[in-house]
């Protein structure tokens, strides 16, 4: 049965006199791909920032897995299973791919100083498990061969995939992707498509994504929300949204 994973009600974000996000409602069920679309500057990333704890919402409630998370700190929300990516890829460029994957698993490792200094069995076991998990996810995104390469030396498309793998290795339940297809060519976009669907179907996580690329959004979304100037404009299935006159006027007109 479809279970409500994320329930957002009346989300509002004000910066001084500017209302960046105005009364946004959205919900994500498990094993769903939900997209947020809208013209540039519509406040979509601000919504993400509010959901993931980087901003504290001025108003509204965000319930994740039955728990109110609005107002919690960013890293705490992340630990509850809600992870996000950024518009500009944020990798640890001077560290290798595998190290990026290991840092993401920091809280699954034995961080006790003494255990590490003495190399206890427990410590070593957790390190090995983390390595294995990292290898598994790198393979899922076809990046295993680059494991020992510096993250900064990867091609852009590879960096994007690494970012997603890095999120997945934290064992999340909801993945927030901020314009994951930006800067990708059509072939890479199709690969991304397949990857996101795979994440939903095989790994049973939900994905909430912000995107401009209509082909990506229409093809894979179960539900779409349209936001313009921080205010909700419409929502529904891809078919419904595509034919909504308000949406067409505000956004899809120039496709």
């Amino acid at each position: 049965m479809s279970q409500l994973l994320l329930d957002v009600n009346g989300l509002t974000m004000r910066f001084g006199g500017l209302v960046a996000v105005n009364n946004v409602n959205l919900s994500v069920h498990n094993r769903q791909i939900v997209s947020i679309i809208g013209p540039n500057g519509a406040g979509k990333t601000t919504v993400f920032n509010c959901l993931s704890g980087f901003y504290i919402p001025s108003d509204g409630s965000v319930v994740f897995k039955g728990e109110q998370i609005a107002g919690l700190k960013d890293f705490r929300i992340s630990r509850k299973g809600l992870v996000r990516t950024f518009q500009h890829v944020r990798l640890f460029s001077n560290m290798t791919v595998i190290e990026n994957m290991l840092v993401a698993q920091h809280r699954h490792l034995n961080t006790n100083l003494l255990a590490g200094l003495l190399k206890t069995t427990h410590y070593k076991r957790l390190e090995q498990e983390a390595m294995d998990r990292a290898a598994y996810w790198l393979e899922q995104v076809d990046m295993l061969e680059f494991a020992n390469r510096e993250a900064g030396n990867l091609a852009y498309g590879q960096q994007r995939r690494l970012e997603i793998a890095r999120c997945m290795v934290t064992q999340p339940e909801l993945l927030l992707l901020d314009e994951p297809a930006a800067g990708l060519n059509p072939r890479e976009t199709k690969q991304l498509d397949e990857l996101i669907v795979q994440l939903r179907d095989e790994h049973e996580i939900s994905v909430l994504l912000i995107e401009h690329d209509m082909s990506l959004v229409m093809g894979i979304s179960d539900h779409i929300y349209v936001i313009a100037q921080g205010t909700p404009l419409a929502d529904g299935t891809p078919e419904e949204v595509k034919n909504n006159p308000d949406v067409i006027k505000a956004y899809l007109g120039e496709e």
Binding site: F75, S78, R84, L91, E99, V103, R107, N110
Partner: peptide
């Protein structure tokens, strides 16, 4: 050790660290 890797990651990109659950 994890703590050393975390130091370096934090130095490189603190926001990314926060998004990955690092305190």
């Amino acid at each position: 050790m994890p703590v050393g890797r975390a130091w370096e990651a934090l130095r490189e990109d603190e926001i990314a660290c926060r998004s990955l659950g690092l305190n």
